[in-house]
Amino acid sequence: MKNIILKNSIFGGLIVSAVLVFGIDYMMKNPDFEPSMVAGFISMSLAFLFSVLGIYQHRKLNNGIISFGQAFKTGLLIAFLISTIYVVTWLVMYYNFYPDFMEKFGEMTLKRASAEELAAKKTELAWMEKAYKSPLAIIGLTYAEIFPLGIVMALIGALILKKK
């Protein structure tokens, strides 16, 4: 079972991290480029399909039988490891390649904001800049960006694939 969890976590983590690396790199080199939240969501969804695949492989390993609890645990572990790979990738990118990310992101965000949104965006960016001074806050914010979708995908996979 450990092999199933590790393999699926690595494959899912590679997918979501590759999109993160190329997306952030492109965004930083092209300030007029607007990052696509849809592309990020799709890459995360594809990555978390490996948690569903892991649940299926676990069920197959158990002669076609898996409880909801076992299925959810397997999917959740895979989702957590995928999310951890994503968080570590972002930390390496941020601290080693883009330490000025928040400044550039703030500039891009304010350029695109309408007059009505400007004050709210400034407040939000000030909060993020303050949070990004703490590595623990960066880790927490990055997990919050990806892990909830992983929980949902693990739950859906466990509901669909449970079999007594």
Rank of each mutant, 00 (worst) to 15 (best):
M1K: 14
N3Y: 08
N3P: 01
I4K: 01
I5A: 06
I5W: 04
L6V: 15
N8E: 00
S9D: 00
I10D: 08
I10T: 13
I10W: 08
F11Q: 10
G12A: 12
G13M: 03
I15Y: 10
V19M: 04
L20Q: 05
L20D: 00
G23E: 11
I24G: 04
D25W: 14
Y26I: 02
N30D: 07
N30G: 03
D32P: 07
S36E: 10
M37H: 05
V38G: 07
A39I: 12
A39S: 06
G40Q: 01
I42S: 12
I42E: 12
S43K: 04
S43A: 15
M44F: 14
S45W: 11
S45I: 11
S45M: 12
S45H: 03
A47I: 10
A47Y: 05
A47E: 10
F48S: 04
S51Y: 06
L53K: 14
I55N: 00
Y56R: 13
Y56V: 11
Q57P: 01
Q57D: 01
Q57Y: 01
K60S: 10
L61Y: 08
L61P: 00
N63F: 05
G64S: 11
G64I: 10
I65G: 01
I65K: 15
I65S: 09
I66H: 08
I66F: 08
F68H: 02
F68L: 04
G69H: 06
G69R: 11
F72K: 00
K73N: 14
K73V: 15
F80A: 15
F80T: 12
L81R: 01
I82W: 06
T84V: 07
T89M: 11
W90T: 10
W90A: 06
L91K: 07
V92P: 00
Y95T: 02
N96W: 13
F97A: 13
Y98D: 03
Y98L: 04
F101E: 09
F101H: 12
M102H: 03
E103N: 14
K104L: 14
F105G: 06
F105Q: 09
G106K: 02
G106S: 11
G106Q: 02
E107C: 06
E107A: 12
T109S: 13
L110A: 06
A113P: 03
S114A: 08
A115S: 14
A115R: 09
E116C: 09
E116S: 14
E117Y: 09
A119P: 01
A119G: 02
A120V: 08
A120T: 13
K121H: 08
E124S: 12
L125K: 05
A126R: 00
E129F: 07
E129A: 11
E129G: 14
E129Y: 06
A131Y: 11
S134W: 02
P135T: 11
G140I: 03
L141D: 11
L141Q: 11
Y143M: 03
Y143Q: 05
E145Y: 14
E145P: 00
I146M: 00
L149F: 02
G150I: 01
V152I: 13
V152K: 00
V152L: 12
L155G: 07
I156N: 01
G157M: 01
G157Y: 05
L159I: 15
I160Y: 09
L161Y: 02
K162I: 09
K164P: 09
K164E: 13
